[in-house]
Write a protein that binds this DNA or RNA. Structure first.
Lengths: 197, 197
DNA sequence: GTCTATAATTCGATAGAC
DNA sequence: GTCTATCGAATTATAGAC
């Protein structure tokens, strides 16, 4: 409110509103399910405005999935508590106000190549090195990737069942129950023994 | 080959070819990504034939995801070996020739309500009772559903990462490695101790 | 800057010839 | 039974008025 000069009042507002509406639509309906028209209607602007500001549906989608992922600082934490902190922090991110942003990426990753690539990149850059590498400094990079792979199957599976598919048996569990029961798995994948085959 | 009378030669053949092509397309592109035209082209028939045989895209999709799921007989197996048998059997189904059928359901479940409902129904009917209930006859039904929920997060997450997203770190693992490392998790979810919160 | 009007595709579905 | 032709609706994207 109270714009500086009345000049370019809703220019950035419009862009922000459209982007917010786009994230919501993409997150709920996926890339092909969401339409420019619906996004524009949600934001209260004309579909042509969306094209003007973002160029194309593809570029709007690219901006929508390109958000920063805050990573917890686990350096000052005892190794025994890292697993629980990760599970609880992960669930908190999905349950919180930024959960919609996460849903976009996971839902679209199943059908849209750009989203899939982004998810893979994020896993490599933000999990393998800073998290698993830091926890197991003496292990090989190959072993780090193996741990990251196992961790991904459990964590992405959790998000898939609870926030995408909304399976009643999974949504029926409390955050505390999930943390209690899944932490041992995450601990083992993170720093536990992984016997060679 | 060698049709009985030459009469109605490719009538059933056409239906089968179309259904096979539909399963492949739905599995790769999802419900909205697949088109009647592309399915017909793959099968070598006219798009109008697809409509004639299946009525609508929705009905064709319903038939495509309505396949029987062979379940392993675990009744005669020692409880300690059940976890490994499930993980290995599960991976075998996904890796085998029927893997395409599974991909349809999981991929479409993320965006299509009918597929999501079918997946949920299958989880309830084929996992909660016959598998987990049989393994833990003295536990409550609520506890059975909790075990099924945990199992679903790990198993669906595994399929998601390996066969849908094809994350390199996960596809880079061998079946034996996955069985070795994930079985302890599955064992715990199936029959292990789940402390109350 | 914002919106109207519309072009250009693409889709599912239908009617009807052969 | 199979295919040609096409309809009607929905979509992205563009051109241009105000």
């Amino acid at each position: 409110m109270t714009p500086e000069h009345g000049r370019k009042r809703s220019a950035e507002d419009a862009r922000a509103s459209i982007l917010a509406a786009a994230r919501a639509r993409f997150g709920q309906a996926g890339f092909e399910g969401a339409t420019i028209r619906a996004i524009a209607a949600d934001a209260g602007y004309d579909p042509a405005l969306v094209m003007r500001y973002f160029g194309s549906k593809e570029q709007l989608f690219a901006v929508s999935i390109d958000y920063d992922l805050e990573i917890f600082d686990l350096s000052a934490m005892p190794r025994e508590q890292v697993g629980e902190a990760i599970v609880r922090g992960y669930l908190g991110q999905w349950e919180g106000p930024d959960g919609a942003d996460r849903r976009i990426l996971l839902r679209a990753a199943v059908t849209h190549p750009a989203a899939r690539a982004q998810l893979e990149k994020r896993l490599t850059e933000q999990v393998v090195g800073p998290l698993i590498g830091a926890l197991n400094p003496t292990e090989s990079h190959e072993r780090h990737e193996q741990r990251a792979a196992l961790l991904a199957t459990q964590m992405l599976g959790l998000a898939l069942c609870r926030y995408m598919l909304k399976l009643p048996s999974v949504t029926g569990l409390s955050v505390d129950q999930l943390v209690r029961w899944i932490t041992p798995t995450v601990d083992r994948y993170l720093v536990g023994e992984l016997p060679d085959v």
